[in-house]
Design a binder for these strands. Structure first.
Length: 283
DNA sequence: ATGGGGGCCTGCCGGC
DNA sequence: TGCCGGCAGGCCCCCA
């Protein structure tokens, strides 16, 4: 599911209904997602105020006034569904949970936010806010794509010793945090790199071009998510995915969009995941 | 240290 | 119409 842009879009969508607001009641409707929930999670969330919403890689961080942070991962199919229709009248007219609604946050404002995740690859955990960086899901993550730590020198150093393909390496969250299958495909298309290229064989020029390409692709997707956010707001408040147009992802057999290229997009499988690329433009 | 593959779940889609 | 295989945007963990 959600890669960094989608997660960022969800975070931004939650700010108006959660930031600075108190959770009147947290309802935890099953004992686990991918892993068991922490002890007494519902009690630890109930009556907590959400001070701010952060993000690290694909994790949403809800910083609470209890000195704890709720870490939320959407996995492949996780969504946050905001329901404001029943604001102020929830006692008389409780929103019926929908299938796969696993955790429901009822805010003091009356807004309900349901975490819905059919495949249950998602996760939630509570952690002392001051030790977030030491959390087992966070501590091994590489730098943020928009952070100062991520630059040409860093990337060249990390790619230089890697025998595996650039596609696989860019998916490795220890190298760089936040890219998933879709945006790696898009980035490699933009720079003209074949996904089968061993990382250590990339020319310095290609490595240098990867850094801005990664940032551009992610920024454009975040911007597109911002507009989809406004659209969703007008409809049902569903946060989790948005439609975005891709140059190569899921376009097998369709013509390459590059000016003057008539080659069709190819799909191959690498480490069990689909890669889409133009064999003419990406070598 | 690195890399490959299995496994976790459900839903959907295409082919027979 | 139903069944079955394959596929899905993530990520941990085990093994070589």
């Amino acid at each position: 599911m959600p890669e960094l842009p989608e997660v960022e879009t969800v975070r931004r969508g939650l700010i108006p209904v959660m930031q600075g607001r108190r959770i009147r009641l947290a309802e935890v409707r099953r004992p686990d997602l991918r892993w068991p929930f922490p002890d007494r999670m519902a009690e630890r969330l109930t009556q907590a105020k959400v001070v701010s919403l952060g993000r690290r890689s694909k994790y949403i961080l809800l910083h609470l006034d209890t000195q704890e942070t709720l870490i939320v991962h959407l996995g492949m199919s996780g969504r946050m569904q905001i329901d404001q229709r029943l604001a102020g009248q929830f006692h008389d007219n409780p929103r019926l949970p929908e299938k796969h609604d696993h955790v429901i946050f009822e805010m003091e404002s009356g807004t309900r936010i349901a975490f819905n995740d059919a495949r249950r690859f998602g996760a939630m955990d509570l952690c002392a806010t001051e030790s977030i960086e030491q959390h087992r899901l966070i501590e091994h993550l590489g730098p943020e794509p928009f952070g100062n730590e991520f630059d040409e020198t860093y990337l060249a150093n990390r790619l230089g010793t890697r025998k595996s393909t650039i596609k696989t390496v860019l998916l490795d969250q220890k190298i760089l945090a936040g890219l998933g299958n879709i945006y790696v495909c898009e980035v490699l298309f933009r720079v003209g790199i074949c996904p089968l290229t061993p990382a250590q064989n990339l020319s310095p020029d290609k490595v240098a071009r990867l850094v801005p390409a990664i940032r551009d692709v992610l920024r454009e997707a975040i911007d597109a998510g911002g507009s989809s956010l406004r659209d969703h707001r007008q409809t049902n408040g569903d946060l989790g995915y948005f439609q975005h147009s891709f140059a190569v992802y899921d376009r097998e057999g369709q013509p390459c969009q590059k000016e003057g290229c008539t080659t069709r997009i190819t799909r191959i499988t690498q480490s069990g995941r689909s890669s889409f690329y133009c064999p003419n433009c990406q070598r």
